[in-house]
Design a protein around this nucleic acid. Structure first.
Length: 587
RNA sequence: GGGGUCGUAGCUCAGUUUGGUUAGAGCGCUUGCCUGUCACGCAAGAAGUCGCGAGUUCGAGUCUCGUCGGCCCCGCCA
């Protein structure tokens, strides 16, 4: 097929091009056939240009243009002309000119697309995913992927300028016992043995530090075989970072520098550094989350002291058991109806606590079902502690420390949503630090690492490892943006004795540690430098900075929430021959 | 593993509460007319496995059970 290559893109032509012969290629966006004259909006990734065909220009091209339909791929040669008076379209950048179509070549026809190739389409996501190539043809999707592209460029430039070395680590790695479920890859050459896809290149990057690379980064795919969410895909991209001879502040400063660049170069927003630090304890006791969204208030207060000697046994007994009574003031909540409150009480109960007590503060004073147990004075003190104003409603929960605050945290987010308290124009960045080393897993009946098993304890807490492990805090830090964890890291353990001790606290025996992590313990015996690092959730940052509702909107070919790829029908069954070669028999 | 919600024309949805004539609308599509449109206009037309499978019933888009799929959440995600 003969056709001329384009001389310009569809976003390029301006009045300065008037009179020039040019060729454009692209997709037919819309066609307006007025009988004697036909207008075509021609689209490529750079923009839209209007092409006009008519018998007074070129009869043959006009006849062929009658056949054009949406999404036909064409090449048009013609002349750039000023649009007649009153027909300029200010909505498009090329709206001052037309291309008069003299030669038209239909490069490919197209079936009528299942949904319109335009922004703000109102269609089911499964259809978009099945026809992803059409979805990605839409300008809002192209913009998102271009945004993502810029993020890669900024990242690589930034780390290169700061002396970091990009090193690729294996995708076929050793399965490790801790953390997320691994995706396994059977080894054909080694019957019965498996590789795992990396949950993160954690062990490799630490070994690169032992190797002396000092500053490493990688933009890397990671894989976790866990259930999906709006912000979680089974394969996702991290910016993985590791540094030697540093402390927490060095890592955090490097990270803040990158975030500053992202905001400046992508959104033209200046963010202030350093970002605020909140300890895990402060975050939990203040906002009920280890990734608090501080774009709005609703900060908690602890009422335990106020109620421990009160006549309200539900609270006083609870405090005596070592539990907590805490809550927060809901602005305007005194106006909630009985029905609304019953609904909120049910909502709270569904989160796994006994209930939700509440004290309404009105102009006339306290209005609460628990006033008769607590007394007016304590109720007023609770309102004061919560910072309640007349018209507010203080929500109170009592349970264990963990349950009370995590329930209040969920309730806090729910109330912010219902009352529309979130300022969508705000960007709230903060560090959460001083995480506990361990948390107890009810399911496994043992301690598990809150961050990961290579995380170093804080030096002043090391003694707790022998006496009271849950009290030991880790040298770990998470970066939070608008209530989303977007990066997490730690200063690592770098001597094999400490590493062995932490393994044993995690219930990983000497033998198992040797089998699973022996290579790392060995490496640490040959001169491991002190080191630490962090990993960014690249897709999540892209999602947040582009105001996308889902991580799927910033990934070219994402999976559905059941881990399925609708476009290529994947995962799929394989031939028995393939399984035989892999020594696998299906149950 | 659990909870919620959705599934009707190519698309978005109404119709389901209370089973009953030929399942409708807007957009899109097709055809015709139309020389300055850009949400073109006007006229006509085609288009349905009511997700799928059983069941109840004289009769099921509508009721029951099962099942598949999308989305959101809990668990899970160091």
């Amino acid at each position: 097929m003969q056709y001329k290559k384009r001389t310009h893109t569809c976003g390029e032509l301006r009045p300065s091009h008037i009179g020039q012969p040019i060729t454009l290629t692209g997709w037919v966006d819309t066609r307006r056939d007025l009988g004697g004259v036909i207008f075509i909006d021609l689209r490529d990734r750079y923009g839209i240009t209007q092409v006009v065909f008519g018998p007074q220009y070129e009869e043959k091209a006009h006849q062929l243009a009658k056949e054009l339909r949406s999404e036909y791929v064409i090449s048009v040669t013609g002349k750039v002309e000023q649009r007649p008076e009153g027909t300029i379209n200010p909505k498009i950048l090329t709206g001052e000119v037309d291309v008069v179509g003299m030669e038209l070549v239909i490069l490919n026809k197209a079936e009528n697309p299942p949904f319109a190739i335009e922004d703000d389409i109102d269609t089911n996501e499964d259809l978009r995913l099945k026809y992803r190539y059409l979805d990605l043809r839409r300008s809002e999707m192209q913009k998102r992927l271009l945004f993502r592209h810029k993020m890669y460029q900024i990242t690589r430039k930034y780390f290169d300028e700061h002396n970091f070395v990009e090193i690729e680590t294996p995708v076929l790695m050793k399965s490790t016992p801790e953390g997320a479920r691994d995706f396994l890859v059977p080894s054909r050459i080694n019957p019965g043995k498996f590789y795992a896809l990396p949950q993160s290149p954690q062990t490799y990057k630490q070994i690169l530090m032992v190797a002396g690379f000092d500053r490493y980064f990688q933009v890397v795919k990671c894989f976790r075989d866990e259930d999906l969410r709006a912000d979680r895909q089974p394969e996702f991209t991290q910016i993985d970072v590791e540094m030697s001879f540093i402390d927490e502040l060095d890592i955090q400063t490097i990270v803040e520098g990158l975030m500053k660049k992202f905001f400046k170069e992508l959104l033209n927003i200046e963010v202030q550094t350093p970002f605020p630090r909140l300890s895990y304890k402060e975050a939990m006791e203040g906002y009920g989350s280890d990734k608090p969204d501080l774009r709005f208030g609703l900060k908690f207060a602890d009422f335990s002291e106020l109620v421990k000697d009160s006549g309200f046994k539900v609270f006083s007994e609870s405090v005596k058991k070592g539990n907590v009574v805490a809550g927060f003031a809901v602005p305007g909540g005194a106006g909630f109806t009985r029905n609304q409150m019953d609904n909120l009480v049910d909502f709270t109960k569904s989160l796994g606590v006994g209930g939700l007590a509440y004290i309404k503060l009105t102009d006339k004073g306290i209005d609460s079902a628990i006033e008769k147990f607590l007394g007016n004075e304590i109720c007023l003190k609770i309102c004061e502690a919560a910072g309640a104003k007349p018209g507010d409603n203080v929500f109170i929960v009592s349970d264990t420390w963990q349950k009370t605050y995590s329930t209040l945290g969920t309730l806090r987010l729910e109330m912010a949503k219902r009352l529309n308290l979130t300022d969508e124009n705000k960007w709230n960045l903060l560090w959460v630090v001083d995480f506990p080393m361990f948390e107890y897993s009810e399911e496994e009946k043992r301690f598990v690492a809150m961050h990961h098993p290579f995380t170093s304890p804080k030096p002043e807490d090391e003694h707790f490892l022998n006496t009271d492990p849950p009290k030991a805090r880790a040298r770990a830090y998470d970066l939070v943006l608008n209530g989303n964890e977007i990066a997490g890291g730690s200063i690592r353990i770098f001597n094999s004795e400490m590493q062995s001790k932490v393994f044993s606290l995690l219930g990983i025996g000497t033998e198992e540690a040797k089998t699973k992590f022996g290579f790392m313990l060995d490496a640490f015996k040959f001169g491991a430098p002190p080191h630490g690092g962090i990993a960014f959730g690249f897709d999540r940052i892209a999602m947040l900075l582009t105001n996308s509702k889902s991580i799927r909107d910033v990934i070219a070919f994402p999976k559905t929430s059941s881990g399925y790829s609708l476009m290529d029908d994947n995962p799929s069954e394989v031939d028995k021959k393939q399984l035989d070669e892999l020594h696998i028999k299906l149950k």
